[in-house]
Computed example of a mutant assay.
Amino acid sequence: MIEIMKESVMRLYRWFKELLIAHNLWDVFTYVFFGGWTTVVNIVVFAIATKLGLSWIIANFLAWLLSVLFAFITNKLWVFHSHVPDFAALMAEIVLFFGARIVSLGIDYGCMFLFIDGLHLSNLVAKVLTQVVIVVANYAFSKFIIFRHKPTDK
């Protein structure tokens, strides 16, 4: 019974993946999936850090750093399937990725200041709202700047 269920789930997965690939949406789907997990990492680290007494400014930076590390690995391996020929090319990807994420960190802090200090929303509500803007900006940076080259094999 378990084997039949497993087989059915795999058939459904393959059908879903083929459908999205046919419509050039597989990258978007995997980005949203892993972006969702990156957002979870960001929010959980932020919530824990603020509960431990860190200011939201420091908690936000810590959450950013850990979520960027998670995002680089998932984006490189499973979203954009980036394969580079050597260590220098890998370092270039890392520098571009972190550079783009520093830009989005500026957007993050701008939104957080607006929501917390300007609109007086709670820290966690501000963090969740800010992540919507950040996910869109980071997808554009990753898709069109950082991992723009196609892999040699998939």
Rank of each mutant, 00 (worst) to 15 (best):
L129R: 02
G36S: 10
I94R: 06
V95P: 00
S55M: 08
V45R: 03
A22K: 13
I2Y: 13
F16G: 13
L124V: 14
V133D: 00
F98K: 03
L66M: 15
I116S: 09
F115E: 01
D27G: 04
L121N: 01
S122D: 12
D108M: 12
R148F: 10
A137G: 00
I73K: 11
V40R: 02
M5Q: 10
C111Q: 02
K6V: 09
S82Y: 04
F144N: 08
A22W: 00
Y139Q: 05
S142G: 10
G110D: 02
V79I: 14
I146Y: 06
I146Q: 07
K76Y: 13
W56P: 02
L114N: 01
N138Q: 09
F61A: 12
Q131C: 10
H81F: 15
S82M: 02
N42M: 10
M10S: 11
F98I: 15
V45T: 14
L20F: 14
F87Q: 14
L105N: 04
E3P: 00
L25C: 11
M5C: 06
Y31E: 08
N60F: 08
I146F: 03
V79H: 06
F147H: 05
A100G: 15
A88Y: 09
S67R: 05
N60K: 10
Y31N: 07
V103R: 00
T130P: 00
S142C: 14
V135I: 15
I145H: 00
F97M: 11
T30R: 14
E3V: 04
I2Q: 11
S142M: 10
F34P: 02
V135D: 02
H23T: 03
M5A: 13
S82Q: 07
K127W: 01
N24M: 04
V125F: 12
N60V: 06
T74A: 05
K143C: 03
D27S: 12
H81M: 11
F80A: 07
T130S: 11
I146M: 09
K150Y: 11
W56V: 01
Y139D: 04
V84L: 10
L77Q: 11
Y139K: 03
V133A: 15
Y13F: 15
